[in-house]
Amino acid sequence: MTSLQKIPVPAASVLAASLHDADFADCYLLPDPQPARGVFQSYLELAALTPGWMSALMAMRNRVVRLVGLKHLGSLSPQDGGKPAAAYRIGERVGIFTLEQLHADEVVVGDNDKHLHVRLSLLRQRQPDGSTRLALSTVVHEHNRLGRIYMWVVGPAHSLIVPLMLKQVMRAQRR
C-alpha cells in the first residue's frame, strides 16, 4: 500500500471501546515506513514532519480560541525534538498532547479539558503478507456547548486537513 486510505477506527485499537458515545471519530491508514521502529518512535517522527502550513494553522487556532476561553495548545510536533522515545513517561506532554497509553503496537495521546476529550491513536497493524501499516485514529468526546461549537467548526476542517497533512508527511518520508 502506497496511498492513504480512510477506514473505520480499527477494532484492535484502544480507542474502539470509546466509539459508542464518541461525538467525532476518524481513521487513516498509511504505509509504515519504518516497521522495525517502536510505534511511539514512529508517532514522534510523524509529528516532527508536521508541515509548516499545519503549524501556522495551529498558531492561528491558538490565537483565536483563547478569545473564547479555550487553551493554547502549542504546536503538534514535540518541542523537545532531541528527547528519545524511551525517555517519555505516561502523563508527559508530547507536543499538544499528553502521553496516555503506550503498548507494543499502539500509542495513545490526548488532551482532556472541560470542553473536549481528544485522543489520537497510532496503531501498527501487521498484515498477512508480513508488512505493516499505521492506523492513525482520532476520537473526540464533547463535554459541553463550547466543545460542541468548537467541533462544529473544527470537525469538517479536520476531515480536510488531516489527509492533506498525512499525504505530505508520506512524501517527506519517501525522500
Rank of each mutant, 00 (worst) to 15 (best):
Q127E: 15
V107N: 11
E45I: 13
A17V: 12
R148W: 13
L44T: 01
Q101M: 06
R175W: 13
V68F: 15
I90M: 08
T132K: 02
A25G: 01
G130R: 03
H141A: 01
L134D: 10
A47C: 08
M58L: 14
K83L: 13
L73C: 10
L46D: 04
E106D: 11
V140Q: 00
D105P: 01
A48H: 13
H20Q: 11
M1H: 08
A104V: 11
P84W: 05
S3V: 05
V162Y: 08
H143K: 10
V139S: 00
H141M: 05
H72Y: 12
H143G: 00
L123F: 06
L164G: 13
R119A: 05
L123Y: 04
L49S: 08
K6G: 02
V162I: 12
V64S: 03
A25H: 03
T50A: 15
W53T: 07
A56M: 09
H20Y: 04
E100G: 10
E106M: 14
A86M: 09
V140I: 05
V9G: 01
T50S: 14
H117V: 04
H141N: 01
L44C: 04
L164K: 10
D105N: 13
G91N: 07
K71N: 15
R171Y: 09
H117S: 07
V162T: 09
N62K: 01
L57H: 01
P156K: 04
E106Y: 13
D23A: 04
E106F: 14
V39I: 13
P31Q: 00
Y150A: 02
V162N: 03
S137Q: 06
A86T: 14
L160S: 00
V153M: 08
V107I: 14
Q79A: 15
F24I: 05
V154T: 00
Q125D: 09
L30E: 08
V94M: 04
D80K: 11
M1C: 05
P33S: 04
E100N: 12
A86F: 10
L70G: 06
H117Q: 09
H20P: 03
R37S: 15
H158A: 09
S159F: 11
V108R: 02
V118Q: 06
G91I: 10
K114T: 10
Q125G: 07
L76A: 07
Q125S: 12
L146T: 11
V140H: 01
S159D: 14
H115A: 11
P10S: 06
G91D: 03
A104W: 05
D129S: 14
T132P: 02
R37D: 15
A48P: 14
T2D: 08
T98I: 04
Q101K: 13
H115E: 04
S121N: 02
V140R: 00
L116K: 10
A47K: 04
S3D: 11
S55A: 15
D21H: 12
G69V: 05
A17H: 10
S159V: 09
T132W: 02
V65E: 07
A12C: 06
M54K: 07
S75W: 11
H20C: 03
I149R: 11
L44Q: 05
A36L: 12
Y88A: 03
E92F: 07
T98R: 01
V94D: 02
M165I: 02
Q79C: 15
V109P: 00
